[in-house]
Simulated assay, not measured.
Amino acid sequence: MRLFRCQACEQVLYFENRLCTQCGHRVGYLPGAGALTAVEPDGEGWTALAEPDRPLRFCTNAEADACNWLVADGGDYCDACRHNRTIPDLDQAPNLDRWRKVEQAKHRLFYTLLRLGLPVATRADDPAHGLAFDILAAPRAGETQVMTGHDEGVITLSLAEADDVEREKLREEMGEPYRTVLGHFRHEIGHYFWDVLVRDAPDAAARLDRFRALFGDEREDYQAALQRHYAEGAPADWQNRFVSAYATAHPWEDFAETWAHYLHIVDTLETAAAFGVDLHPVASADESLVAEIHFDPHEPDTFDRLIAAWLPLTLAVNSLNRSMGQPDFYPFVLSPPAVEKLAYVHALVHGGPDAG
């Protein structure tokens, strides 16, 4: 994630800012320009100091303080919020506060997707397979619970995941080292992009061959594989081949977990670069612990640099967390086979030849 500057006073701004705390200008995010901009009233709309030549308005969800993105076309919702199909009843406490947390995570997801130039057709654009979100506070009729998941472009998320206590309880019950709302979105969007970039790609046969060589045959019975995983757990040697224990459940889950880790890496490295973070450990001459993070991780020719920077960065931040008595920032190990799978995701994202 970038750092931004207020065009009115040069104050540093962060992605979720609604106001510049120094000059008081309202600020909004322009997804097309990738800019957080100070705005000034202009009749019924706003003028962005970053792009003063076109009228803008805030997304309708800004009225609920759930969005700070600007809209330039004739729609009511921004490039992230227009994908919402179902949102919770905001008159019911504490739905509004939890939904705001969900939207904050979802907007971070869309920031990265748009920066990478990935296709995000809405349900209106593609009624059969377009991307849509159902954020549910209660089960639908006939269901006993809200199940977070993906089905042909529709991503469902339980609003309970925005409750820190409930989410931590679920994390412990499921033996997970990491569970966040943003992590859920990055995982589930991985399932969506498997459909878009592998199954439905023009060169799907070649991409499926490459996918199956790395991840396994996705034609394995999915429900039976999940039941086996929850009954038996992951293989003892899972860290030698997978990014997480859950990735062992089925090739689709392996891909979604790998996709999520790829987005973790890209976004975190951009944040590190924005803060000018470099690593030169004083107690070691090991060059593998040195990281020069002076590059844009969204560019297509950066994969080797991504991995070379990510490993020392996570070692450093894990050590900082331990100094504060906190769990590891990145409680995972990337084996060579896992890195090869990440390279495949990178190739899919950028249309490289290694995709198949």
Rank of each mutant, 00 (worst) to 15 (best):
A72H: 01
D301I: 02
Q7E: 12
P88N: 02
P312G: 06
I265H: 12
L334T: 13
R228H: 00
H294N: 13
Q7A: 03
S158V: 06
L306K: 11
M1S: 10
V120S: 05
E40R: 15
D126L: 01
R98S: 12
V333F: 07
A247F: 13
D79N: 05
A249D: 01
L90I: 01
P202M: 12
A8M: 12
F275A: 15
V282W: 00
D73I: 00
R26L: 14
P337D: 09
V266M: 07
V12C: 03
T122P: 08
R186T: 09
V39W: 00
E299K: 05
F329S: 03
R98E: 08
V181H: 02
G34V: 11
H25K: 07
V333E: 11
G356M: 04
A272Q: 06
F275T: 15
D73V: 04
Q92M: 08
R199C: 08
L116F: 00
R5D: 03
H346W: 06
A236L: 06
V345R: 01
A93V: 07
A225P: 15
D286A: 09
R210L: 01
G75N: 05
V266N: 14
D267E: 12
Y111E: 11
T156K: 02
A8H: 04
A132G: 10
P235A: 14
P297E: 15
D126S: 03
G190Q: 13
L311K: 07
E172H: 08
H229L: 08
L197V: 00
L19P: 01
Q145V: 02
G233Y: 03
L159G: 01
A93P: 09
L30M: 14
N61K: 07
E51H: 04
H280Y: 10
L170V: 02
Q7L: 02
R54I: 01
D221M: 08
D328K: 14
D97C: 09
Q92G: 00
K341E: 00
R241H: 07
L208Y: 06
H298V: 13
L118Y: 00
R186F: 09
T314P: 10
D286L: 04
D328N: 14
L90R: 03
A338F: 14
F110M: 12
L114D: 11
V333N: 12
A72R: 04
V181S: 01
R305C: 06
L30V: 14
W310P: 04
A213M: 01
P139F: 00
A291F: 10
C78D: 05
R167C: 09
I293N: 14
D217L: 10
T122L: 11
E218R: 02
D278C: 13
N318D: 15
V333M: 09
Q145M: 05
E299A: 15
T180D: 04
D76M: 09
A234C: 13
P52V: 06
Q145K: 11
L197C: 13
T112M: 05
Q11Y: 01
W252C: 10
G183N: 04
H294D: 13
L208P: 03
W69A: 03
M324C: 15
L13Y: 08
T258M: 10
G190W: 13
R167P: 06
